[in-house]
Simulated assay, not measured.
Amino acid sequence: MERKKVSSSNLKSIGYLLGILEIEFKNNTVYQFKSVPKNIHNRLMKSSSKGTFFSKNIKEKFTYSQVL
Results as ranks from 00 to 15, higher is better:
residue 1 M to K: 09
residue 1 M to C: 12
residue 2 E to A: 13
residue 3 R to I: 14
residue 3 R to T: 13
residue 3 R to H: 08
residue 3 R to Q: 12
residue 6 V to Q: 04
residue 7 S to T: 09
residue 8 S to Y: 00
residue 9 S to V: 12
residue 9 S to N: 13
residue 10 N to V: 15
residue 10 N to F: 06
residue 10 N to H: 10
residue 11 L to F: 01
residue 11 L to P: 01
residue 12 K to G: 03
residue 13 S to F: 00
residue 14 I to G: 00
residue 14 I to E: 01
residue 14 I to T: 05
residue 15 G to H: 03
residue 16 Y to G: 02
residue 16 Y to Q: 03
residue 18 L to M: 13
residue 19 G to N: 02
residue 20 I to M: 12
residue 20 I to D: 12
residue 21 L to I: 04
residue 21 L to M: 04
residue 21 L to G: 02
residue 21 L to K: 05
residue 22 E to R: 05
residue 23 I to W: 02
residue 23 I to H: 01
residue 23 I to R: 00
residue 24 E to F: 06
residue 25 F to I: 05
residue 25 F to C: 03
residue 25 F to N: 01
residue 25 F to T: 04
residue 25 F to H: 02
residue 25 F to G: 03
residue 26 K to T: 10
residue 26 K to I: 10
residue 27 N to R: 08
residue 27 N to A: 08
residue 28 N to L: 07
residue 28 N to D: 15
residue 28 N to R: 11
residue 30 V to C: 04
residue 30 V to D: 09
residue 30 V to M: 04
residue 31 Y to L: 11
residue 31 Y to V: 14
residue 31 Y to S: 11
residue 32 Q to C: 10
residue 32 Q to S: 12
residue 33 F to Y: 08
residue 35 S to P: 09
residue 35 S to Q: 14
residue 35 S to M: 14
residue 36 V to I: 02
residue 37 P to D: 06
residue 38 K to R: 07
residue 39 N to M: 08
residue 39 N to E: 14
residue 39 N to A: 06
residue 39 N to H: 15
residue 41 H to R: 03
residue 42 N to K: 11
residue 42 N to Q: 15
residue 42 N to C: 08
residue 43 R to Q: 14
residue 44 L to S: 06
residue 44 L to E: 05
residue 45 M to H: 08
residue 46 K to P: 05
residue 46 K to L: 08
residue 46 K to N: 12
residue 47 S to F: 00
residue 47 S to I: 01
residue 49 S to M: 07
residue 49 S to N: 10
residue 49 S to T: 04
residue 49 S to G: 07
residue 50 K to W: 03
residue 51 G to L: 06
residue 52 T to K: 15
residue 53 F to R: 02
residue 54 F to R: 01
residue 54 F to Y: 09
residue 55 S to A: 11
residue 55 S to M: 10
residue 57 N to D: 11
residue 57 N to Y: 12
residue 57 N to K: 11
residue 58 I to A: 02
residue 58 I to W: 04
residue 58 I to C: 02
residue 58 I to N: 06
residue 58 I to S: 05
residue 59 K to L: 02
residue 60 E to L: 13
residue 60 E to P: 06
residue 61 K to G: 03
residue 61 K to Q: 08
residue 62 F to W: 02
residue 63 T to P: 12
residue 64 Y to T: 14
residue 66 Q to Y: 05
residue 66 Q to C: 09
residue 67 V to Y: 09
residue 67 V to M: 08
residue 67 V to R: 08
residue 67 V to T: 11
residue 67 V to I: 13
residue 68 L to S: 15
